[in-house]
């Protein structure tokens, strides 16, 4: 690890992580240090295992029949795959925004209030305040403030994705995993999301999957490059984009393949 890496502490330490779907390994022996209060971008061509990788960080693979995880993921010094770790509590700490927007078929309000309600916030006023705050941070408030009780499914794709971000923020996690959160968004909404992510990193640790080199370069502090299930290279974004140490990284960044 290089200069910037040593200044911050590791929020998550991934060691020799492999994820199998049945017998096929989709991620092979990946190791990565995720720095606290930083944005880490995961890049790589389609199908290289980025989604598979971040789903291992909040134990989403527990829900996938046939998926198996090997190796260690240490969060704040605790291996999240240790038998005494409760994945429900873990996911309270690690929020996730999915590649495809997946709002609940409920009202906009109920979508955002879902997490807090689950975790015991019943008080009407504080719940409303929390929902508003979350929607504001996700840059959606102005568009939906007059129709909070309308179905979330009536929103556009980009609005739905921001709603999903607001839904995660309302739970107030420590880490936010984002799987291409901007892929369905127009440039304006994308820049709103990028601003949001920049803003978020003061309080949160963010891991973001993206297909856009520019986006990775603009917002992230660290970058990890995946190819065919291998974590080829990781390090401070500046270094990765200026002088990659691996030929394959360079080829990808310069658009020679992928």
């Amino acid at each position: 690890m290089q200069a910037a890496g040593e200044e911050t502490t590791a929020k998550v330490q991934v060691d020799d992580l492999s994820v199998y779907y049945g017998k096929v390994a989709a991620v092979k022996h990946a190791s990565l240090k995720v720095h606290e209060n930083c944005v880490t971008a995961l890049i790589g061509p389609s199908g290289c295992g980025k989604t598979t990788f971040i789903r291992a960080l909040n134990r989403m693979h527990d829900l996938t029949p046939g998926a198996r995880v090997e190796g260690r993921v240490v969060l704040d010094g605790i291996d999240i795959y240790a038998p005494n770790v409760n994945p429900v509590l873990l996911r309270h700490k690690i929020g996730m925004v999915f590649q495809r927007p997946n709002p609940f078929p409920k009202s906009i309000f109920d979508n955002v209030a879902y997490g807090p309600r689950i975790h015991g916030t019943r008080n009407g006023a504080s719940l409303e305040a929390l929902v508003e705050r979350s929607l504001r941070r996700a840059a959606l408030w102005n568009e939906v403030k007059d129709r909070l009780d309308r179905s979330a499914l009536d929103l556009s794709g980009g609005q739905q994705q921001r709603l999903c971000i607001a839904r995660v923020l309302a739970v107030e996690p420590e880490i936010i995993l984002m799987d291409e959160p901007a892929s369905a968004l127009d440039p304006i909404a994308t820049s709103k999301i990028e601003d949001l992510i920049n803003d978020l990193k003061r309080e949160y640790t963010v891991i973001i999957v993206t297909h856009s080199m520019q986006q990775a370069a603009r917002m992230s502090d660290y970058t990890a490059f995946f190819l065919l299930g291998d974590l080829v290279e990781s390090g401070p974004t500046r270094d990765m984009f200026t002088r990659p140490s691996d030929k394959r990284t360079e080829d990808y960044i310069t658009g020679r393949f992928g």
Partner: peptide, 23 residues
């Protein structure tokens, strides 16, 4: 009901039971 609904709920820290009953 698509798996992503279940995943959305679980990823927010809901238990399986809460996911079934509330989503």
């Amino acid at each position: 009901i698509p798996a992503d609904q279940r995943e959305a709920s679980m990823s927010l820290g809901a238990t399986k039971w809460e996911t079934m009953m509330k989503v």
